[in-house]
């Protein structure tokens, strides 16, 4: 009696997904066209350092006179590239592990889940710092690290629904007419677990934005001179007394990117009617 009627919820979900997709389009534009839409070269210095917003430099300049808007756009490309690739890898690994584990059950399930439990026990960010510190902060290592730390969460999301779905009638029916186990997993089980995976992927994308920018904020991001939202924020912080507004650009960019995925996740959740956990 207390839950809202389904159509309204559905409509709200649609609106949110639409807004989220529009925001995502902006982000994708930055990734694809980054350097060509930036007004200046991100590494071109000028004598006007730490300027506030002007007609020439919409967001102002940094400590050695580089255009902040251009650095924000090109830096966004780097940040988002790492995010997308890392999450894609985590998703692939999570799918394989979760499907195998949930589908085969028994000993395989037990072993895979115990191993994931171990990774799960580490605070994500702490583990990321340690791994990046050990391997060295390159783009490739960042991607690998983030993919590793988010794989368990992904695998669990896949495994849960698989466990319940694989006992369903049409799966049983397919098995009884002799469809191969692999084909069953791909053709019958996978479609049923898509919704929670979509929602979880959006949430993990938001988390990854956080992890990537936080690592670069600490100086563990891709090495300079490539700009990056996290390192830009760290840099702006040092000159905050002289040019407080330089903090705003990277801060807003980071918030915008994570908000994109949170809006998408919430919208998808209502649209596809996925439970909150």
């Amino acid at each position: 009696m207390s839950d809202a009627p389904a159509p309204k919820k559905h409509h709200r979900g649609q609106t949110m997904v639409f807004i989220g997709l529009a925001m995502l389009a902006v982000l994708l534009l930055i990734v694809v066209f980054g350097p060509s839409i930036a007004p200046y070269s991100p590494s071109k210095t000028s004598p006007n350092s730490l300027d506030g917003p002007t007609a020439m430099h919409w967001l102002g300049t940094d400590s050695i006179g580089r255009d902040l808007l251009s650095r924000l756009i090109v830096g966004g490309r780097g940040t988002l590239f790492i995010t997308f690739v890392a999450v894609a890898l985590a998703l692939a690994a999570g799918l394989v592990l979760g499907l195998t584990s949930g589908y085969m059950g028994g000993k395989v399930d037990l072993i895979v889940m115990r191993i994931l439990d171990v990774i799960f026990a580490f605070p994500v960010f702490l583990l990321a710092i340690a791994v990046v510190a050990a391997l060295g902060p390159t783009v490739r290592n960042l991607i690998l690290t983030i993919a590793i730390v988010y794989t368990p969460a992904m695998a669990r999301v896949v495994r849960g629904p698989v466990l319940s779905v694989k006992r369903w009638d049409h799966v049983e029916a397919a098995r009884s007419v002799g469809v191969g186990e692999f084909a069953i997993a791909i053709r019958h089980v996978l479609p049923m677990v898509i919704s929670p995976i979509l929602v979880q992927t959006s949430l993990i994308l938001a988390n990854t934005i956080f992890t990537v920018t936080a690592l670069s904020f600490l100086g563990l991001g891709p090495p300079p001179p490539d700009p990056n939202w996290g390192s830009m924020l760290a840099e702006a912080r040092q000159f905050m007394e002289l040019a407080p507004l330089t903090v705003i650009g990277p801060a807003v960019a980071i918030i915008f990117a994570s908000l994109t995925f949170i809006v998408l996740a919430n919208g998808l959740r209502e649209l596809l009617d996925v439970g909150s956990r």
Binding site: T213, R237, A251, S258, I262
Partner: peptide, 22 residues
């Protein structure tokens, strides 16, 4: 809550330092 979720804690901290410090 949705907005807050999108603001990482180090951004919050930086903004707090900015507002209170300046």
């Amino acid at each position: 809550n949705s907005l807050l979720l999108a603001v990482p804690n180090f951004v919050v901290a930086t903004l707090i330092v900015l507002v209170f410090g300046l």
